[in-house]
Nucleic acid binder design. Structure first.
Lengths: 228, 228
DNA sequence: ATAAATACGTTGTATTTCCAACGAAAGGAA
DNA sequence: TTCCTTTCGTTGGAAATACAACGTATTTAT
């Protein structure tokens, strides 16, 4: 069991937790460790969950099977990532996705209701975990909110400009690197890659942006609202 | 001051908190009440915040001014709603929106770092608040995730079908009511209203859905993945 | 170094969406 | 009732997107 916990500090949920405290923490939260083979189902869509999962090792997929029987991959999770947290933390809720392993995996389940309750021992790491969980969910939230701003734009051009200007703002510079290649950027903005590529060319031709590979630059002299 | 807190139980963050405990709770969390006139700025974009706001009375707007100087309304908040929570709860963070009042408003600010810490009095409502906050943020998260599933579809037809089948699943029935009129649905799915209306008609003509006003029905005999 | 694979831009066509405008239907107010 | 407002569906033209296909550059593997 110990072997799994060598790098718990790389897991955002356990940031700032002493490794020596970790076992008692698990007891305190009644964490449950489960092992799965490849292609096993961890959670079924429709399950009512009050605990969330932490991927300790392996790899799992979160899948949505819709009304028409199509399977959509919602996300692919690597060690350190959570699933079900925003369902379990709102009281027992129906979980609308199916979680399956794509590699042999070890998963830690933590009961949400145990979390918020102050434990008898008033352990210091207890409040740390709560803060971490709040932080993880909040970060997730910010990511979704930000992405929403881009995707809700109607045209590819607007989506690109919204995305690029947000990156420029973050970098606090006209020029900046983006962490995506073209296909990934297209997926992120949910547009067609080739159409996006064409639109990028047009933006360049129009003198609004410059780019080369994943280095982009917003042209200052184009900063009028006409372009958006 | 008391006048503001007559219906704190309608505020999700304070669900389950006894009104009699409320004052000591505020002390415990060092909550700060602030009053604003109409059209005052509550938070400036770029502010570093470690506390979030609870709209007690009035009405406020959350606005994003982008790189090109355009103002986009992110959300309009009524009493009981929060802002800044997913920024403040991830440690002190730069807040990328501007918050302004559109009516005279009273806002309660709560420091996030005070929340997670167990207080000296080990008050019971403290853990209740944490659970509530987790619940609020989680619910927000679920809403964003769900909406994302619809909006990331490429065509209006797919967006509609994804949305409608999700509603059908929630209602656990082929027929169900939706809480939007056409314009609101179009805004939610971020498509053009008239184009959406046309697409709805086409879906009806194709025998895939039936609808009248805001009552919709998915036709069972059309449940093949060909339509999606 | 060579070959294979991947990433990227371009183009043309078929679809789809947007946008503006209009009329019909439904609902509310006087 | 009558008038006014809002909601909704429809249509047509302009614009944008998706999709498939292809050539080139760049990267990775052998």
């Amino acid at each position: 069991m110990d072997k799994y916990f060598n790098d718990i500090n790389h897991i955002p949920l356990f940031a700032g937790i002493e490794k020596s405290n970790f076992k008692s923490l698990l007891t305190c939260l009644s964490g449950k460790l489960e092992s799965y083979d490849k292609h096993q189902t961890v959670l079924f869509s429709g399950d009512i969950i009050s605990s969330f999962g932490v991927v300790i090792s392996g790899k799992v997929q979160v899948i949505q099977d819709d009304y028409y029987g199509n399977n959509n991959i919602i996300s692919i999770l690597s060690p350190g990532q959570l699933f079900g947290e925003s369902f379990a933390c709102g009281g027992p809720t129906i979980f609308p996705f199916t979680v399956t392993t794509t590699k042999p995996s070890v998963i830690l389940f933590i009961d949400c209701s145990k979390l918020a309750m102050p434990c008898r021992k008033a352990c210091s790491f207890h409040s740390q975990i709560i803060q971490n969980l709040l932080s993880v969910i909040s970060t997730n939230n910010r990511g979704l909110t930000e992405k929403m701003q881009f995707i809700t734009k109607r045209s590819t051009r607007e989506k690109l400009l919204a995305y690029l200007s947000a990156q420029a703002r973050k970098a606090d510079s006209h020029s900046f690197l983006i962490p995506f290649n073209r296909q990934e950027l297209a997926d992120y903005l949910s547009v067609d890659r080739s159409a996006m590529s064409a639109e990028l060319s047009k933006l360049k031709r129009d003198g609004i942006i410059k780019y080369r590979k994943n280095k982009f630059e917003l042209c200052v002299d184009s900063l009028s609202s006409d372009n958006v």
